[in-house]
Amino acid sequence: MRILIVEDDATLADGLSVGLRLSGFTPELVTTCADADEALAQGGFAAVVLDIMLPDGSGLDVLSRMRGKDDRTPILLLTALDQVRDRIAGLDLGADDYLGKPFDLDEVTARLRSIVRRAEGRAQADLQWNGLSVDPARMNGRHNDRDIEFSPREFAILRALLERPGAILSRSALEDRLYGWQDGVESNAVEVHIHKLRAKLGADFIQTIRGAGYKLAKDAS
């Protein structure tokens, strides 16, 4: 899941970025409103973690510009101004959730999963397909009565495929999901992780469509 982090404090931004990656998200980082607008214009984010006080303006302005353009990407506001008045202002502008600084990394990831789930119209936290049930919070799953653990990168790919089962995702689309902009992309990373996933879920669980990409096999259940 690609998450856009808009935060100008270097220490916090880095912590969020590393923390989200360790929790199976694919974070990308910008530090100003202008950069945030630009990144959002390109799209493709499952959610945005948005700080309010930014060097070139207020995160609330970014939020209202997004909602003005009918961009419904779920937004988690982060701010130190955690007075009720500020919360109400943020939520009224269309934020999906709100966290006051300092916060727990676990809470950030839990709330991100929750707002993404809500945006996708799912009530259930688990993702299910073809005898596999995945718990995004723990990055583990259960397949045919067998517990399976996934690494963050394996999980990122699996999660991308599970979001729209049956759709074909190109290798570059999966690479996008795998890395933030800061990371260098190893040329065969996607293949390596697909291979590892097939070893855990069975060779047929993910199908390779030559020249197009990958997709999940049809739901047999």
Binding site: D9, T11, L78, A80, P102, F103
Partner: peptide, 8 residues
């Protein structure tokens, strides 16, 4: 903000 950074 820096405290949040430290905690994270």
């Amino acid at each position: 903000t820096p405290l949040a950074g430290i905690k994270t």
